[in-house]
Amino acid sequence: MNALTRVWRAPRLILLLIVVQLATAVWLSAAVRDAIGRALEPYSILMDGRFLGLAIALLRDHPELAAGYLQALTGSLVISLVIWILISPTVITRLATAGQAPATLPSAGRHLPAVLAVTLWHLVPRAILLAIVGAATKTLMPHGNWGLAGLALTAVTLAFCTCALDLARCHVVLHGARRWHYSTALRAFGEASRRPRVLLPSMVWSFAQWGCTIAMLVIAINAAGAGSTIWVVRALAVLGILFGLTRIAVAVEAGPDPGRT
C-alpha cells in the first residue's frame, strides 16, 4: 500500500482534521471581525487601494484590536500544536491500519507521552542544524544579502528535519523504539539521510504542504480589500492537510529502520 492510499483509506480522519482546523480558524477570526465592526460602527471605509494603510490606522487607533489580532494568531499556533501533538499517535496508528477495523485507535493514546518526549528530543538537533545552516548562509552571503539559495537551503533542512521527526514518531508508536531515550530522535536523522526513498517523497510532500501555506498567504494578502477569496484559502488549507497526512504516511510506509541492529 502506498502512502496516498493510506490517506484515502482514512476518510473520517481526514474529515475530522479538516473540520477541526477550519472551525478553529473561523471561530478565531469571527471574534476579530466582530470587534472591528464594533470599533468602526457607524462608519465605513472605502478601500480604493488603501487597505494596508487603513488597516494600520485602525489598529493604531484601536490597540485592543491589534491585541485581539495577535491573540487570534497565537491561539491558532497553540491550538494547532496541541491538537497535532495530541492526535499524532492516533494519526500514525490510523494510517498504519488504514483499511482495517479501527479498533486499535483508543490504544494509540498510550503513546502520547512518548511521542511528546521524542518530539522534544528532536528539537535539539533540529535547532543545531538550523543554526549551522543560518551561520553558513550568513558566512557565504554576508551582510544580510541572503538570497534564494539561503532560503532554499533552510527549506531543505526543515524538510529533512520533518522527515526525521515523522520517522521517530512512527518508530515509537509502531515499532517499539525506545520511548524516552534521546537516541530514538537522533537515530531518525541518520535514518532519514540513509533512506533517500523515504526522504525524497517526504520532502516533496513537505514542500507541497508549505507551498499551500505560502499560496494561502499570498492570495489572502493580495486580495484583501479587493474581494473575498476566503473559500480559495480554505480549499488550499484542506489541500495542505492532505499533503501533510501523506507526508506522515510516507514515514508509516517506510516501516522499521532497516539499519537498526
Binding site: A25, R33, I36, S44, T213, L217, G240
Partner: peptide, 26 residues
C-alpha cells in the same frame, strides 16, 4: 445596512493567517 468595508477583509486575512499558522503544526 452596508458593511463597514474593513471588518470582512481583515477578518478574512485573520482566518487565512490562522489557517497558515495551523498548517505549520502538522
Amino acid at each position: 445596512g452596508e458593511e463597514d468595508g474593513l471588518s470582512r477583509p481583515l477578518g478574512d486575512l485573520t482566518e487565512a493567517m490562522s489557517l497558515a499558522v495551523m498548517g505549520l503544526g502538522l
